[in-house]
Structures are given as C-alpha cells and as structure tokens.
C-alpha cells in the first residue's frame, strides 16, 4: 500500500463513528485524519493494528478504548476513560483528559499533555501513563502494575489501595490513599522516569525532581486490625 493510498480523511460531521471504526477495524495499516470529532464517544475504540489516527478536536468518552498496537492522538481534550483497558500502542492527548484516563489499561503508553481528572490510572494493570499537568483525586486507585508519571500535582488519596504500580509525582500530593507511602527515589527510578518522559516527548522536565510513591503492602492480606485503614 503506498503512502498516498494509506492516508484517509474522515469528517465525523459527515460520517458516523460506526463507519469510521468499521474502517479502522478492517485496516491492517494506514493513517487516518479525523475531523470534527465533536466530542463523539468511542472514536477509534477497539483498534487492533498499527494504524495512526489523528483526531482534530475534542473526543468524548472511551476514545481509543481497548487499543491494541495503534497510535491515536487527540488534538484537543478527551472525555472519560480515554484509552481505557488499552493493551498496547500509544494514545496521546494534547489537551486535558477527563476522569478515569487509562483505566484498567494493561499496556502501551498514554500521554496527557494537559491535566488529567480524577481516577487517572484507576486499576491500571501494566500501562505507562505520563501526565504533563496534574491529576485529580483517587488517581491510581487500586492500581495493580505499570507506571504513572505526573509532572504537576496529584489530588487527594493518591494510590489508594495500591498494589504494585509505581507512581512518580513532581509537584505536591494533596493526600495519600490507604496503604500508599512515599518511597526513596533511587537512581534506577530517575532513569525510569527519564525514559518515560522521553517516550512521552517531554524534554524540559528534570527526572530527578520527582518523588516516588508505592504500596506499603500492609493490606495485601486482610487483617481485621487493618479495618480502620479503609475508613
């Protein structure tokens, strides 16, 4: 397939999300430029091939949901659950992301160049998330594995009931959730942050200026004496 043939323009003012997604699901390669997304939901959800999708405007809920292999870039803001349950690939949001960005995602890279709202990385299962701005409350709630890098601040209850995900925050943390504690930032972590920032295309943030948070692992085995920790 030539480069010219593989470039597709889709205007969501003229074409339905269903038609767009059907075309994307049928393709094994190619580049899509999507105009007038108008906050529509589930744009580019369920992709399975290494496609490139550029969305010129704001996307609604679940943009690039369950993504596999594709690169999806939103030149605007993204609604609830952008890249939810992503398995692989790359999803990038130029603006802000609403709640539950990258929720339960197993792999791939989610980059939010603006801020992400509450529950960013909730129940994440292996994804890497880099947020240029700040994240809202209960981010990384019950996060299992993967890495969350926040260049700005984190809201209340960061990492509540955290499992093995690694959290890096450069700014302030309003409060830590149950069983989430600050840990030493060692050289290996700085290297890890640097690699994630590079992957996200962020080159003006010093990786040594972050703080690391992780699970105290006190709640891994339920004990009645810990019941108060959940209150």
């Amino acid at each position: 397939m030539s480069a010219i043939e593989s470039l597709h323009d889709t205007d969501l003012a003229q074409t339905s999300v269903r038609e767009l997604n059907q075309a994307l699901h049928a393709a094994s390669a190619g580049r899509w430029q999507v105009a007038n997304p108008g906050g529509r939901h589930a744009i580019a959800a369920g992709l399975t091939a290494p496609l490139e999708v550029e969305i010129d405007g704001h996307a609604g809920y679940y943009c690039a949901g369950m993504n596999q292999l594709a690169t999806v870039r939103v030149h605007g803001n993204a609604g609830v659950g952008v890249a939810e349950n992503m398995m692989s690939g790359r999803v990038e949001v130029d603006g802000d992301a609403s709640q539950s960005a990258g929720a339960t995602a197993h792999g791939g890279l989610l980059v939010v160049h603006g801020n992400a709202s509450a529950r960013c990385g909730i129940s994440m299962k292996g994804v890497d998330i880099v947020v240029r701005g700040s994240v809202g409350h209960l981010s990384a709630f019950m996060a299992q594995t993967g890495r969350l890098v926040v260049c700005g601040d984190a809201g209340d209850s960061l990492g509540d009931s955290l499992y093995e995900a690694r959290l890096y925050v450069r700014g302030s943390v309003a409060s830590l959730g149950a069983d989430c504690v600050e840990k030493d930032l060692r050289e290996e972590h700085v290297t890890e942050i640097a690699a994630l920032l590079t992957a996200a295309g962020i080159d003006d943030v010093d990786p040594a200026t972050f703080r690391r948070y992780g699970s105290a692992r006190r709640l891994y085995t339920f004990d009645v004496d810990d019941a108060g920790s959940f209150a």
Partner: peptide, 12 residues
C-alpha cells in the same frame, strides 16, 4: 455510553 463502546469494539 459504555455499552456503545462495547458495541463499537465488537462491531455490534
């Protein structure tokens, strides 16, 4: 909207 997403992912 969640149901709509699942339908999209599985082509209805």
């Amino acid at each position: 909207i969640k149901i709509e997403e699942l339908r999209e992912i599985t082509d209805g």
